[in-house]
């Protein structure tokens, strides 16, 4: 694995630790307003300064990691389960099932611009954490399904699968104990890139006011609140820190995904 992958892993570990131990890392209450302390520049007391309502930006960024992690992990896990199930079904059974799933259903979901579908779903369902996660899972699963289908198609032709079949193993047994364990490796890459995508989508939707409603400290909401011209004039740090947090997190998971892909694919490793 290359250097960037290790940098990615370090940032991701830091992000996860900060998210888990947020109550110990944060220095102030995230929703506590103090109007006499508005727009304070970064200092020893407020490391990242304070925002328009006098809230501590550092503590909010720390708790923002928690929201991102929560959304990211839920979306990745649910999407992986749904995607693996449908992808395996398509790849293993082939024939009509495959034609319907990969030829039609997958294509429909790939054809829709992901963010737009999420926006549409949230617009009609209403905003909130649960609905946001639901929308991101609906746009997310198809990536995993495609990867798994391709893998299952490959693995099912291997000799050991034929051997298992000759020994009289049932379809389910072949799929779950023989094929899937040998097919899930690329899922790790997909999951890492999916984590980056989910964090980004959550922030995007929150930025548009369609995600987690304020005063919850989502990074997207924080940027939305910080882009008013008076804030940019008086306190650009309110924009700067959540922006850096999103960029670093997305970058880290992309690094890990790219690095793992290279690591798992010897053809790319040489380049």
């Amino acid at each position: 694995m290359n250097r960037l992958t290790y940098i990615g892993i370090s940032i991701a570990v830091l992000f996860i630790l900060v998210a888990i131990f947020a109550p110990f890392v944060a220095t102030y209450d995230v929703t506590a307003q103090n109007l006499s302390m508005r727009y304070i520049s970064p200092s020893g007391e407020h490391w990242f300064g304070t925002d328009a309502l006098g809230r501590d930006v550092f503590s909010r960024v720390v708790y923002g990691a928690r929201i991102s992690l929560q959304v990211g992990i839920t979306v990745v896990v649910v999407s992986t389960v749904i995607g693996t199930f449908l992808g395996a079904l398509a790849g293993f059974y082939g024939g009509f099932i495959d034609k319907f799933l990969s030829g039609y259903v997958f294509n429909v979901f790939l054809a829709f611009p992901g963010l737009l579908l999420a926006i549409a779903l949230v617009a009609f369902l209403g905003a909130g954490l649960g609905k946001l996660i639901l929308a991101l899972c609906i746009i997310g699963w198809v990536g995993y399904a495609r990867v798994i289908r391709g893998q299952v198609l490959k693995v099912r032709e291997y000799d050991f699968v034929q051997a298992a079949r000759a020994l009289g193993a049932s379809n389910m047994r072949i799929l779950f104990t023989h094929i899937l364990p040998n097919a899930i490796q690329p899922l790790i890459v997909q999951a890492s890139l999916g984590m980056a995508g989910a964090v980004l989508s959550e922030a995007s939707l929150s930025f548009l006011g369609l995600g987690i409603p304020p005063p919850a400290p989502s990074w997207g909401t924080m940027i939305e609140e910080a882009r008013g011209l008076d804030i940019l004039y008086n306190a650009p740090h309110v924009l700067f820190f959540p922006g850096i947090a999103i960029a670093l997190t997305v970058l880290a998971f992309n690094f890990i995904g790219d690095g793992l892909r290279e690591y798992l694919d010897p053809k790319q490793r040489k380049r």
Binding site: A203, I223, E224, R227, L232, P236, G243, I246, A247, V250
Partner: peptide, 18 residues
């Protein structure tokens, strides 16, 4: 690639407009 639109945009506003 890694900076989302809604981070780049306000940064550009800060730099070139403010």
């Amino acid at each position: 690639i890694s900076l989302p639109t809604f981070v780049i945009g306000p940064f550009l506003v800060y730099l070139f407009a403010v």
